[in-house]
Design a protein around this nucleic acid. Structure first.
Length: 596
RNA sequence: GGCCCCGUAGCUCAGGGGAUAGAGCAGCGGUUUCCUAAACCGUUGGCCGCAGGUUCGAUUCCUGCCGGGGCUACCA
């Protein structure tokens, strides 16, 4: 609907340009929903933007535009006001926003999304990419959900999306994993075993279990092998990768491609890339290591120019050395754009990798990184502390199990990705309006419930869109809701563009809020969608009941239901048709968190 | 030291060049307890961390400072 208004404004501007009011390109027409209702249904500041170029007062330009908009014959615009410093406040013709219902009904599950089958540009979204050295921890969940939602958003806006997980199955971390398994395996066999030195091993309980499992499966068949034997590394890695797969699946995260770093090194692509860099004179030996020369681009702590290590003095490749060919490989496989979701603790590597890709001949603008800030978990108002040293951490699986995948996903997406997030586990479990997931899901379930009740108790189906019928929608909230429904495409586009689903969550809460207000308000005043029991208790109520309004509202409510479902699907959150009726079984002693 | 993120109502957070800065919770005042849940309506409450700058216009962009968090490996 805003699209139609925008088109009308744009063609108006074009006409005014032809008349010589201003020159050059059309300014971008931004339409916003005014905060104050008296400012109409849509407002634009184009006149203010144009004022300088046209060398005329903004209000004068606004008047010129307004005059033409008022003459528009498409039946979209009801009135136009010039206000304040030169805003154009547009009031829509009722037909225009009632038409939203027609669009929603026509497009159904596709409403808000790019047309199916549109072949867009190809994007590779890589996320999580945790070391296969243990179950995913709580913090990984945020990156996982963010990456998955970015993928969904891009798909919804016409991109051809591949999601990818890069397995760091080579190098120091998996070597430490192998040593750990060796140690725990010997322990499980009852052999004398020496604890690996320092922090070079994984202290988590899961490794004890893994050692016992190996001992159970193979007896002492592997007891003679040295700690560094690849067997231990691979055995542990394979099992833990399966655990990670399960953790992600439980969260509803879809990974299309699992990419092995080890396999990459075996293709020769790493050597190829190194030689290419060497051929360009960008590589040098320094202190026994092979370095990428970065000129003055990067500095160390003391501010001295710093080169980047590619091959360590012990002959091992750094992750940086394999990251370069890995990203080149993703581009070679046909991606027009690479998006990596990284923890914010890696932010220092973004310019380095981009620089290296550029050195290797790739287009650095095709490489984007979304940095996700850290998450803290709170239970009953106190932070859930973890001990990294003891190998104890809050696992993702634990949280998903506790609050369910829908709540986990919604909570991870509640804040912008570049803000730190406090995840209130107690709140995520609550079954009341305080809990934003419950609130939004309940709005959807309530729509379903009313539609269901209409069918079952009143033999009323949701009517097909009908402009005449739609005119029975007179409640002010109904109008607000229709305006908001029409905004879904813009909300989706903006979220996709920002690589951040957070705006969809905000939108959902606002829409759910409007629907809740409508429900409770009408219930209070008695003009509900369906007749209340008290109404039906009186004689002759059927003749007095405004059935057209009921049918109109069913049409309206069903559109709202559809939009809620579509937006929830974008976040991977369930849109239940019924809320499980909770009986009073709250015996876990959880009390409302006292903030303080 | 350098770099990144954040600072908006008592609390949790939206808004990211435009009009009188919003929501939820908490507080206060009312109404209601019947389409699935204690909700609804109204209302109080803000130097948008501070100071400069850019701009016709800054909460929004830039710089500096203050406060909070994080990163700063020949680990990933």
């Amino acid at each position: 609907m805003n699209r139609r208004v925008r088109q009308i404004v744009e063609s108006t501007l074009e006409a005014l340009r032809n008349e010589g009011l201003f020159e050059g390109e059309l300014p971008p027409v931004t339409l916003e929903r005014p905060k104050r209702p008296e400012h109409g249904d849509a407002a634009t500041n184009v006149a203010l933007v144009l004022a300088k170029r046209a060398a005329r007062p903004p209000r004068e330009i606004a008047e010129a535009i307004a005059t033409r908009l008022r003459a528009d014959a498409s039946g979209t615009i009801a009135s136009v006001d010039v206000a304040g410093p030169g805003f154009l406040n547009v009031r829509l013709d009722p037909n225009a926003f009632l038409g939203v219902l027609a669009n929603v009904h026509a497009e159904g599950e596709q409403f808000g999304f790019a047309p199916a089958g549109s072949r867009g540009r190809r994007v590779n979204v890589e996320f999580v990419s945790a070391n296969p050295t243990g179950p995913l921890h709580f913090g990984h969940g945020r990156g996982a959900v963010l990456g998955d939602c970015i993928a969904r958003l891009l798909r919804a806006t016409g991109w051809d999306v591949t999601t990818e997980f890069y397995i760091n199955d080579r190098g120091a971390q998996v070597a430490a994993l192998g040593r750990t398994l060796h140690y725990r395996y010997l322990q499980a066999l009852g052999h004398e075993a020496v604890e690996p030195e320092g922090d070079g091993w994984y202290r988590g309980e899961y490794m004890v279990e893994l050692g016992q499992r190996l001992a159970r499966e193979a007896g002492d068949a592997h007891a003679g092998k040295p700690a560094g034997d690849p067997f231990f590394r691979d055995y542990a890695k394979d099992i833990l990768l399966d655990v990670i797969r399960r953790d992600l699946a439980a969260l509803g995260v879809q990974i299309d491609v699992w990419s092995s770093e080890r396999a990459l090194t075996e293709t020769g692509l790493v050597e190829e890339t190194l030689s290419a860099l060497r051929a360009r004179g960008l590589v040098a030996e320094q202190d026994g290591a092979t370095m990428l020369l970065t000129g003055e681009r990067f500095q160390d702590k003391e501010g001295r120019p710093k080169n980047e290590v590619l091959v360590k003095s012990d002959g091992e490749l750094t992750y940086f050395a394999t990251d370069i060919p890995y990203h080149l490989d993703k581009l070679r496989r046909g991606a027009d754009l690479l998006i990596d979701v990284w923890g914010a603790d890696h932010h220092g590597h973004v310019p380095r990798l981009r620089f290296a890709l550029e050195c290797a001949g790739a287009d650095p603008t095709r490489f984007e990184v979304v940095l996700v800030q850290m998450v803290r978990a709170y239970r009953d108002g106190v932070e859930v502390k973890v001990s990294k040293r003891a190998g104890q951490y809050l696992t993702l699986a634990e949280i998903v199990d506790e609050v369910g995948p829908s709540a986990a996903r919604f909570f991870f997406v509640l804040r912008r990705h570049d803000s730190q997030l406090d995840f209130d586990v107690s709140l995520a479990k609550r079954q009341d309006q305080e809990n934003p997931v419950f609130y939004v899901q309940y709005a959807h379930a309530r729509c379903c419930s009313i539609v269901r009740k209409a069918r079952e108790e009143h033999q009323l189906e949701v009517p097909a869109y009908d402009a005449t019928l739609a005119r029975a929608l007179e409640h002010p909230i109904e109008r607000d809701v229709m305006l908001r429904l029409g905004e879904l495409p813009e909300v989706v586009a903006a979220a996709a563009d920002a690589r951040d689903p957070h705006g969809v969550g905000v939108y959902l809460r606002e829409l759910a809020g409007l629907l809740a207000s409508h429900y409770t308000q009408t219930k209070r005043t008695g003009d509900t969608v369906l007749p209340l029991p008290s109404t039906m208790a009186s004689d002759g109520w059927r003749e007095r009941w405004p059935w057209d309004r009921t049918r109109a509202r069913l049409m309206w409510l069903d559109a709202a239901r559809q939009v809620l479902a579509n937006a929830l699907r974008l976040l991977g959150v369930d849109a239940p048709e019924k809320m499980a009726r909770l009986d009073v079984d709250e015996t876990d002693g959880s009390t409302a968190p006292a903030e303080g």
